[in-house]
């Protein structure tokens, strides 16, 4: 109950934001982003100046590496290139991509409920597939009887 109430409050807050005007959503605080990425900008410059250097070749004590992960969020990077993997409901993942979709939700969302939804989508998809073939065979079978 508490969870439902919270999500309703959350959803209405977002709706109010959306009503405020479509142009506002396209405001970007470049100053904030520049500040956020100041350390990475310095690291980029360091890497450019030391051509061919890799992360493992830089001393771990170098302050430029503070809080820097050694791997990129590949799915996140791919989501910038085309239609987004995020935002698509978990059930649809399972429905459209079967077990691979379930696995993707399992690893990306790391959420038991979301994985369950993906699994339900996968099961619905498999069920529909079986129903389709059963109906197809029955109809085709009857057609053969009719012709015979």
């Amino acid at each position: 109950m508490k969870k439902t109430l919270l999500s309703m409050i959350f959803a209405s807050a977002f709706s109010i934001g959306a009503i405020a005007g479509n142009a506002e959503v396209f405001n970007l605080d470049e100053q904030e982003i520049n500040t956020e990425f100041a350390q990475l900008n310095e690291l980029e410059q360091f890497v450019t100046e030391n051509e061919g250097i890799t992360l493992s070749e830089i001393s771990a004590e170098n302050p430029l590496l503070a809080n820097v992960s050694n791997s990129s969020d590949i799915l996140g990077v791919l989501s910038t290139l085309g239609e987004p993997p995020f935002g698509v409901p978990s059930m649809l993942w399972g429905f459209c991509f079967g077990i691979a979709g379930v696995a993707l939700v399992y690893f990306v969302a790391d959420d038991r409920d979301e994985t369950k939804k993906a699994f339900i989508g996968c099961a619905i998809s498999a069920g529909l597939y079986i129903v389709f073939w059963v109906v197809y065979v029955l109809v085709l079978g009857n057609a053969f009887w009719f012709v015979g």
Binding site: A11, F14, S15, G17, A18, V25, F26, S79, T80, G87
Partner: peptide
Amino acid sequence: ANELIKKQF
């Protein structure tokens, strides 16, 4: 539900 989930520039 009209919640903004991502924006790209």
